[in-house]
């Protein structure tokens, strides 16, 4: 991966405020290279989702710049470079759309103005469904899926979009072990394809299995980012999580976890 020096995401000195008053993000810096996975870790309310929204262009920075593959966010979005996988609770699950239609929505930005899918769009949708193992469920209405399957469907949509920077918001939230392993494998594949990923997660234990780099978010800014092993020290995590590292808990607790 080291030969890949394309900078996928470049957050420089970004400060953001909702409405007015207090800043929700203070002079944050972050760099994610192509073909690498960056984990985003921090307590609730530390600024993870603000950072996500800023990278998505939903919140304009007061100061600083966000660039995606050297372009401003809006242009990168129009070019289809950014794929976003939301936390799955955000949509109406009774909505009358099938899994296939949801995945096709990933292609919509690339279609002509009448939004008629062509052969390439159909192929991409089929392949994406295949990659997340959702072929058999393609014609189901989205509400008929289990939690893990819902997650996979939305991942497939991001795959169909063929973005080069993927933003995954809590991909492991509320999914079973099988799905979470499938997601990790998939991230490995995407990484080999040269795509960059920014992944927010609460699951510190699995960070080392899939992240090249980790960014620690605390007190509305990026405390530190760098190679996973270097960043995930007891000291750094303690600073991020307000005093004690959840990863480096007392030994007795670790014994309890495995019989």
């Amino acid at each position: 991966m080291s030969q890949n020096t394309v900078i996928a995401l470049d957050v420089k000195d970004v400060s953001v405020a909702y409405g007015g008053g207090r800043l929700s993000l203070r002079q944050a810096n972050l760099e994610v290279r192509g073909g690498s996975v960056c984990g985003l870790v921090g307590m609730n309310g530390a600024g993870k989702s603000t950072l996500f929204k800023t990278v998505m262009g939903f919140l304009p920075p007061l100061r600083g710049t966000v660039q995606v593959f050297g372009q401003p966010v809006i242009r990168a979005q129009k070019a289809g470079l950014i794929a976003y996988v939301p936390q799955s609770e955000d949509v109406d699950w009774n909505f009358p759309v099938s899994v296939r239609e949801v995945v096709m929505m990933g292609r919509q930005g690339k279609m002509n103005w009448l939004r008629r899918p062509n052969a390439v769009d159909h192929t991409m949708v089929d392949e994406s469904l295949e990659r997340v193992g959702m072929n058999a469920f393609a014609e189901r209405q989205i509400g008929e899926l289990s939690g893990g399957q819902r997650k996979r469907a939305f991942l497939a949509r991001a795959l169909a979009q063929d973005g080069r920077l993927l933003l995954l918001d809590e991909p492991f939230g509320g999914v079973d072990v099988g799905t979470s392993e499938a997601i990790i494998n998939l991230m490995g594949e995407l990484r080999r394809e040269g795509r960059a990923m920014l992944v927010s997660t609460h699951d510190l234990g699995t960070l080392e299995t899939f992240c090249d780099e980790v960014a620690l978010i605390a007190d509305r800014t990026v405390l530190l980012y760098g190679p996973t092993a270097e960043v995930l020290t007891a000291e750094n995590l303690a600073a991020t999580f307000g005093g004690r590292s959840p990863l480096h808990a007392p030994a007795a607790k670790k014994l309890e976890a495995r019989p």
Binding site: M56, G57, F58, I74, Q77, K78, A79, G80, I82, A83, Y84, P86, D90, V91, D92, F95, V97, M105, G106, Q108, G109, L114, R115, R157, Q161
Partner: peptide
């Protein structure tokens, strides 16, 4: 009817609609 696909996407998932530059 002409804009139904984009309108539907907006109604279903405005965040995604925005993220693909709509």
């Amino acid at each position: 009817l002409l804009l139904r696909k984009d309108l539907l996407l907006y109604v279903f998932d405005p965040t995604h609609a925005r993220s693909i530059g709509l």
